[in-house]
Amino acid sequence: MWRRLFEHWKKIRKGDKILVGLVLVLALAGVLYPFFWEWFGGDIGDLQVVINPVGSERQRIALAEVPEEGMELIVPGPIGDHLVEIFRDGVRVIAPEDDPLKICEKTGWIRRPGATIVCVPNQLGIWLEGSDDTGLDGISE
């Protein structure tokens, strides 16, 4: 099979060979891009996590500036401390032991602009801001 392919290849014109080569290179780049996107100069975008404890100052952290291994933030509140885990590709909250429903923890990871985490007893709101490539203005949930 490879020999026949080689025979055919020899018969193809030089311009067509360049074209085939170009298509193969582009296809390979397309496949590998997601794995090496940061190396190719890609970035996380302009996503920021906003941490808004009621009665305290609002905090903003750009996800692009978060260390690769992620970071943790303790946010104290009347019924205990919330642990906010921030990674470049998402944010989640671990609720304190005394939080009866642990709604914020059940929310899981948020990863897109506009997504929110609400910690009711501690009056803590966390959300992501930034530009969105989905073309959506909001999500009903």
Partner: peptide, 20 residues
């Protein structure tokens, strides 16, 4: 305005139904 609808079949909040 374009509004997505959360897909409750997936636990993660990021998943949406096909309806906009």
């Amino acid at each position: 305005w374009r509004i997505g609808i959360r897909d409750p079949r997936r636990e993660d909040r990021g998943h949406l139904t096909d309806h906009v």
